[in-house]
């Protein structure tokens, strides 16, 4: 049960890391110039007395260590506080909660689509390296990799929404519809999903191709071939399984990305995701919202790393996590 002990140990290690992360982020966020008053008070924010009064009411005039301690004690008791800039008075937990479904819907579907594109393309490219097929898709992957997402998004909108009028260009649902409908939701999801998926697929294809090529060089493949196994069994059973192992790790690392959202894509397509929330929170100096997001992403990153390590150990018997 070395693995369980390893996992527990790592989980306990997350706590001090999260604490350090929160301390550091809290300091940096509060040291940035400006205050939430700048967006709350409108033109009145030019009146230093009004700004000061608001900051006093929000407790922002207190020494920073005190502010941190009171924030920490609230968080430890399970209260993430209320928004002070984006939607004053609104519970932070609710603000984050509203974004979970849209963010996950977009990130999970685009990751799946990316895998659906990347695995077959990567494998096929690796089977005949330097062939026309391989070169063509390598070129496409690099081309897509260097395209900015917002540009691609705009082009897709111009073609599929404006010219052809097939797909809606923004939002999650047609506001004129009386009730939620899945076909309408998927129509809205399609363009942003494709934009994100293409970007991820470009990188993943290269990854799968490399990993597959590496496996094909190994001796057990030669053995399998020598045994006289049909080539499709060699490729798709022996080689592919081994080549996809490192992908598991990659999936572990992508867990935080699933919830952090994609700011630019969300902005162009008006998708109400986590990324836009984070950016808007920065611009309105909404400290409680920002800190909650930092904690969430920090936690997911650490968990994601742990999951990746554990998955790897499960999948690859050569890796053992033992007590020193």
């Amino acid at each position: 049960m070395a693995l369980t002990r390893y996992a527990v140990k790592r989980l306990l290690g997350i706590l001090p890391l999260l604490f350090l992360l929160s301390l550091l982020s809290f300091s940096i966020i509060h040291l940035a110039p400006g205050s939430p008053a700048s967006t709350l008070l409108g033109e009145k924010a030019f009146d230093p007395a009004a700004v000061q009064a608001l900051e006093e009411r929000l407790g922002l005039d207190q020494p920073l260590p005190l502010q941190y301690l009171s924030w920490l004690s609230r968080v430890l008791s399970g209260d993430l506080g209320q928004s002070i800039g984006l939607k004053p008075g609104y519970p932070v937990i609710q603000l984050l909660g509203e974004r979970v479904f849209p963010t996950l819907a977009l990130s999970v579907s685009s990751l799946l689509l990316a895998l659906l594109i990347a695995v077959p393309l990567g494998v096929t490219s690796a089977l005949k390296p330097h062939s026309f097929f391989d070169r063509f898709f390598s070129f496409l992957a690099f081309a897509e990799f260097s395209l900015p997402n917002f540009w691609l998004a705009m082009m897709l909108i111009l073609v599929f929404s404006v010219s052809l009028n097939w797909l809606p260009s923004s939002g999650m649902a047609d506001p004129r519809l009386a009730s939620f409908s899945w076909p309408d939701f998927f129509a809205h999801l399609l363009l942003p999903m494709v934009v994100l998926a293409l970007g991820e697929a470009a990188a993943l294809t290269r990854y799968v191709r490399g990993s597959m090529l590496e496996v094909l060089q190994q001796e057990f493949i030669r053995t399998a071939k020598a045994k006289g196994l049909p080539s499709h069994v060699v490729f798709y059973k022996h080689a592919l399984r081994n080549a996809l192992l490192p992908l598991l790790t990659l999936l572990g690392y992508s867990i935080p990305g699933l919830l952090s959202g994609a700011v630019l894509t969300e902005t162009v397509f008006g998708w109400p995701g986590m990324g836009r929330l984070a950016v808007n929170a920065v611009f309105s100096r909404d400290y409680p919202v920002l800190m909650a997001e930092v904690l969430l992403f920090g936690f997911l990153t650490l968990i994601g790393n742990l999951v990746a390590d554990i998955l790897y150990a499960c999948a690859d018997p050569r890796i053992r996590y033992e007590q020193p």
């Binding site: 799946l112 004129r176 519809l177 009386a178 076909p183 129509a187």
Partner: peptide, 27 residues
């Protein structure tokens, strides 16, 4: 299993690329 789900998702997408015509409009 995961891939099956993805496939199902993709198929359902293919069937609905035209925006919501024929659904009831609220107002």
């Amino acid at each position: 299993m995961r891939f099956l789900f993805a496939l199902a998702l993709l198929l359902s997408l293919a069937g609905c690329s035209a925006p919501s015509q024929g659904s009831s409009l609220s107002a």
